[in-house]
Design a protein around this nucleic acid. Structure first.
Length: 480
RNA sequence: GGCGACGUAGCCAAGUGGUUAAGGCAGGGGUCUGCAAAACCCCGACCGUCGGUUCAAGUCCGACCGUCGCCUCCA
């Protein structure tokens, strides 16, 4: 089987064929860095990161580009988000952008989202944007009015092909005041003249101003990935108008297709509603991490298909926590046993189980990155492996074979970091002390001094160390 | 109003034409264990409603009900 991807452009699953065999060029719309990242960012970037990881696992050389928007865009209230943010925090706009870029990367690191290969900042690509706008003017598909430049939508026939709309259908002027200087209500800004109080401003052939909402993605993706490139991703809420405009700008200027595959991921909801500041249900990743382990949040996200919405509820997160524990318990147990297992041949039963699971998860991932189905197969394997583990002592080779599969798939592809190894060799003496207590407790148990033995176990548990008495001795793990 | 998505067991969530509808959580019953934890075994849905197509439909078509997104910055 081979990788198939649901392409928003054609509205169907298609066999993925990159432009250059063995290589993938991919662009995903990044955040506007004027505020802390929230759970919705978490879902989007975990979704796309997992795709990148899987394609790399398949052997593709992936070039992954994601922008950082730091130039500010006009809200319909006439305000600029970067400007608003800097006033709120009493900072210079670029200082604000730098601060929240760092926060964003910090949060993504905790979710184990691998960093994009290139993270171009919009503010660093103003000259390229100006050049591109000039191209559109030269092509006669854009026009200048009072120091601003607009894209003439009626002149670009394919407009609406991504979102499935016709411009005649668009209700114009119902909810926003149509700028009188635009020739058509559907026209969108490529360059806006800066008002005197606007700090974020750059010189251009049309006077001082700032770039329009969509031009940065068109210009930066093509600059680093070429035209066309393979995959363009982003949240569904950006399908229209943002992505539609990106296509229009790119293709109208050059006559060359923009991106071959468009991937849109579903939104994250909080108790059934879109997360929105005005609804008071806005949860930043930093806040979420205070309650839940970032790996639990990542796992929770992957438990649903990327294209669907996710409803973030405490109950669902709790279920994900338990499920992940089940998986990591096996991982940990394999590690523990492998460290002192006897040499021997690879068990054909284990090999069969692991190989079967490996094929199964690959098929699921090949089918439009179906992570929930792949995870179900992992749980099947977990159950059977636990059964085997309970019945016989396996050779080191068998344990390592199973463990390495988890490292490759759960670790490298799903991006779930392995359970922490017991801290042997750490600078502190925790491991030694715990082992000593276990030894003493087991002597008490042999003497049937249950109360004292339980006292030690309860005391350690209160300190976050859990003991498990097994047939082959007592193991322990830190609970945080 | 226009465009689009979705509605599967108490909760979360795969499955998109064909043997007994994955998996996780919660719940119930067992096994193991001094107890606990972990683990294993057993138990649950006829797929929003109503029609239609088909030898055969959660799975395709239509209508209706409900939820959500986009149409305005948004991951």
């Amino acid at each position: 089987m081979a990788l198939t991807i649901y392409n928003s452009l054609t509205r169907q699953k298609e066999l993925f064929t990159p432009i250059h065999p063995g290589r993938v060029t991919m662009y995903v719309c990044g955040p506007t860095v004027y505020n802390d990242s929230h759970l919705g960012h978490g879902k989007t970037y975990v979704n796309f990161d997992t795709m990148v990881r899987y394609m790399r696992y398949l052997g593709y050389q992936v070039l992954y580009v994601q922008n950082i928007t730091d130039v500010g865009h006009m809200l319909d209230t006439g305000e600029d988000r970067m400007l608003k943010g800097s006033q709120r925090e009493h900072m210079q706009p670029m200082q604000l952008a730098e601060l929240y870029t760092r926060h964003y990367l910090r949060d993504m690191d905790r979710l184990n989202v691998s960093r994009p290969d290139i993270q171009p900042h919009a503010s660093g690509h103003i000259p390229e944007m100006i050049t591109w706008i000039q191209k559109l003017l030269d092509a006669g598909i854009a026009y200048e009015v009072n120091g601003s430049v607009y894209f003439s939508v009626p002149q670009y026939k394919p407009y609406g092909k991504l979102a499935g709309r016709r411009i005649s259908e668009a209700q114009s002027g119902t909810r926003i005041d149509v700028l009188e200087e635009k020739r058509d209500p559907a026209d969108f800004a490529l360059w806006k003249k800066a008002s005197p109080e606007h700090i974020l401003r750059w010189p251009s052939p049309w006077g001082e101003g700032f770039p329009g909402w969509h031009i940065e993605c068109t210009v930066m993706s093509i600059k680093y990935l070429g035209q066309p490139f393979d995959i363009h991703g982003g949240g569904v809420e950006n399908k229209f108008p943002h992505h539609e405009c990106e296509i229009a700008q790119a293709e109208a200027a050059t006559g060359i297709p923009f991106a071959n595959y468009w991937i849109h991921n579903g939104m994250l909801m909080i108790r059934g509603e879109e997360m929105h500041k005005s609804l008071g249900n806005y949860v930043t990743l930093a806040q979420a991490f205070e309650h839940w382990d970032p790996m639990v949040i990542r796992f929770f996200i992957l438990l649903s298909h990327y294209r669907g919405p996710i409803d973030f509820t405490e109950e669902a997160i709790e279920a994900a926590t338990k499920g992940l524990q089940r998986l990591t318990n096996l991982w940990q147990e394999l590690n523990r046993r492998a460290s002192n297992a006897a040499e021997g041949e690879l068990s054909s039963q284990v090999k069969g189980l692991v190989d079967h699971t490996s094929r199964s998860v690959n098929e699921s991932m090949d089918d439009d990155f179906n992570t929930p189905e792949a995870i179900a197969a992992l749980f099947d394997m977990t159950r059977e492996m636990n059964g085997i583990l309970a019945g016989e002592s396996l050779s080191r080779a068998s344990l390592v074979y199973a463990r390495d599969f988890l490292v490759r798939f759960v670790g490298d592809v799903l991006g779930i970091t392995p359970p922490q190894e017991t801290k042997q060799g750490d600078s502190d003496n925790t491991a030694g002390l715990v082992e000593l207590l276990i030894e003493s407790r087991n002597k008490l148990r042999q003497a049937k001094q249950w109360a004292l033995a339980d006292n030690i176990r309860d005391g350690l548990l209160a300190l976050g160390i859990e003991l498990r008495d097994g047939s082959d001795g007592t193991s322990w793990k830190c609970l945080h």
